[in-house]
Amino acid sequence: MASSLNKPELIVNGKRLDGRDFNELRPLKIEANVLKNAQGSAYLEWGNNRVLAAVYGPKEAMPRHTADPTKGVVKCRYSMAPFSGLGEHGRSGPNRRAIEISKVTKEVFENVIFLNEFPGSEIDVFIEILQSDGGTRAAGITAAAVALANAGIKMKDLVYAVSAGRIGDHVVLDVNMIEDNYSDADMPMAISPKNNEILLLQMDGGLDTKQLKEGMEMVIEAGKVISKVQRDALKAIYESK
């Protein structure tokens, strides 16, 4: 477990444990339209993270009392597969952490989907973490955005998410599991790349103003790469045929 007593050396010779630079992303790969029954779907590999996202709807909101007659509602279910982690996150089902992540993910997409187009109905977003290695909420949002676009749901933007963190005095990008457990700060952000609006910002640990700014700049810079991978994944559906 994370504790300051047995903290490993996270930066060796100016490189991180997995050999990355401070502002380097893990390798990212997305494939869209992988599930036949879903309206839209995406499979994402981000470092050792494996995420499957599926979108259903819009359909009649069930149970009926959740429906809003003026606009649609987004329902999001983030869930970690029982075999996804190395023990501590290995329980499946809606635990406290999963409920929190489902809620923040839902709020990200409520801000980009044209909900007033779908009064009285719901859009279901399912995010299943098959294998986790830190930054799964960011990976889930990035995959779900592709799935939503694949479902043909009108959106203002294709959202991406990535986390920044701090190890000692260094601000780092895209923290993985071991860095997340032992680092001094972890800050996942979801951004709408069109105008760099921030849709999600959470933080564990602490950053000063300068480090926060540096982290945000890193995230926005990395977003260009992530957005391109997302767009290429969507494009590939129509190129292979």
Partner: peptide
């Protein structure tokens, strides 16, 4: 102007053709 759907931009007709979407 921004697109809000997955589709094709046809530069001759200056129009967006959706590739995925719902029936209204």
């Amino acid at each position: 102007a921004y697109s809000n759907i997955l589709g094709f931009y046809d530069s001759d007709r200056k129009d967006i053709v959706p590739l995925e979407g719902l029936w209204k």
